[in-house]
Simulated scan of single mutants.
Amino acid sequence: MSTGLIDLESSSPGQLPILERRSIQRKMKLTKAARYLGAMLLFVLTAWILLLAFPKRQHYISITHDFGIGFDLSPSYATVAVSYPNGTIQPIARVEGDEVYRKMMVRLSLSSSQHLHQPYQDVGEAIGDSARQLVRDTRKKLGLPSSRDVATLCNMLRALRDQASSFVGEPVSAAAISVPHLAALYGEDLYDAFEYLSLVYVEFFPFYDFRPIPAAIAAYAGNGLGLCADYRDAAACEEEELHISSLFALAVGYTHTGLTTSQAHVSSAYYLEETPTLENMHLGYDARCGFDSYWEAVRQYLERPMVTSPVQRNISMVVLFGDAVEKPEFREVLKQAIGVIGGEPEIVDHQPEFSAAKGTAELAKRAIYRQMKGLNITSESEL
């Protein structure tokens, strides 16, 4: 009976050598493949090490204009404005965010999206974030945005820059940016996006690297508050801003897709303390349909910064910004929410869709003037 096994003793004389040759050939192929794979890995590793060791390409960019350009990012759209040296501040355009942008902003509003980032609090954070930074540096050396989020931000900022350049009639080389207080929207990503687009990132907080302007203080400045009258007179300007009254405000950003709110301590437009800060990307105006208790949820959310603060403060101002704050239903709910603190705080809400971009543009203009004066640079418009 046949067992299906090869009987080595009864096999034909030429059968065993054939099996051995096939086994040897398979081993040789595997060895060759392993060597090839090893060589490829060694090549990739060597190329990667050389890439990281190669000096980063420097972006030699400078500010070429004396007007200020301000970008403001909202959860579903962004706006841009310009402030001219003659005092004119004009909104330029609104750019709608695509699906990728909107999903990114929702994700960045979640505390679960937070991670270590620059600027670091200590050496331990820098070491803990080294792997992520290595990936970012590698992408930069390859000529790519440092992360997917940075790539998404680049698309939006490029559109804002192009709108601004078309409006002012010349290339825009520098801008400032304001953002809502989202949990994981970090200044380093915005800075990398500016760098990728060869834009000067105008900064205002020298002790907080890459810190963008909070939308609340940008909207405050966009309403003409917290700023000296003549920014060209440095001494008088500093003295005037030192004596701007300090007050507490309820800052509310309300759009069709999200709601942010905080209790803000403000004085000059270069100072802001927000606590607590809240954001909900599911309480925008468009969410009211099919949500029976929507307006009650909005009212409670508006009240929270005022009633949950560890220190009860006198709220004397309400700063509103966003494309939905003028909705009559919202205004009625806001009135009810303010009622819990009593009094009649001042409502600051001029051009709420563009107020943050306008304030950012005005701050950018003043910062550019100081930089140009410090570097003895004369813009073409002053020649």
Rank of each mutant, 00 (worst) to 15 (best):
E241F: 01
C228M: 02
F43G: 09
A151G: 11
E380P: 07
S112A: 09
D323M: 04
D129K: 08
E125W: 03
A159T: 05
L19N: 01
D286N: 14
L51C: 07
Y186E: 09
G322R: 03
Q58T: 06
S11M: 15
H117C: 10
Q25Y: 12
S109V: 03
L334Q: 07
V135Q: 10
D209R: 14
E329I: 08
A78Y: 00
S293Q: 07
A234C: 06
I89S: 01
Y101S: 07
Y101H: 12
R26K: 15
D129H: 13
S12A: 15
Q263K: 04
A264I: 03
I368C: 09
A93V: 03
P345K: 10
A164W: 11
L50E: 10
V150E: 05
N280S: 08
G290Q: 00
S178K: 10
Y294T: 00
H265Q: 02
E329N: 08
Y36R: 15
I217D: 00
F67C: 11
G143E: 02
R148C: 09
K365C: 09
A131I: 14
P85G: 15
R107F: 05
E346F: 08
E362L: 06
Y60N: 15
D292E: 00
T152R: 13
A364E: 02
R304E: 13
F205R: 04
I127A: 11
F167Q: 05
I92L: 06
E382Y: 14
Y186I: 07
G70A: 08
E332Y: 14
R102D: 06
G97T: 07
A53L: 09
L41S: 11
S166C: 05
F321R: 08
R35E: 14
T46G: 11
K335F: 04
R94L: 05
R107I: 03
K56I: 09
H65G: 07
I127Y: 15
K56V: 09
M104C: 11
F354P: 07
F321I: 04
A221D: 06
G222P: 01
V44A: 08
D98L: 08
T255P: 01
I61T: 04
L182G: 06
E326V: 03
E380Q: 14
K335E: 15
W295F: 00
E332H: 15
P352Q: 10
D162T: 14
A81E: 12
P17S: 03
L185C: 12
S267V: 01
Y285R: 06
L302D: 01
I63P: 04
L272D: 01
L302H: 04
K29F: 10
A126C: 10
Y369C: 13
P85L: 15
E382L: 15
R94N: 04
L108W: 01
Y77D: 07
A216K: 02
A215D: 03
D162R: 14
D209K: 14
P171L: 14
I24F: 11
M105N: 12
I177R: 10
K365H: 08
I377N: 09
R132S: 13
G374C: 12
G14P: 06
N155M: 10
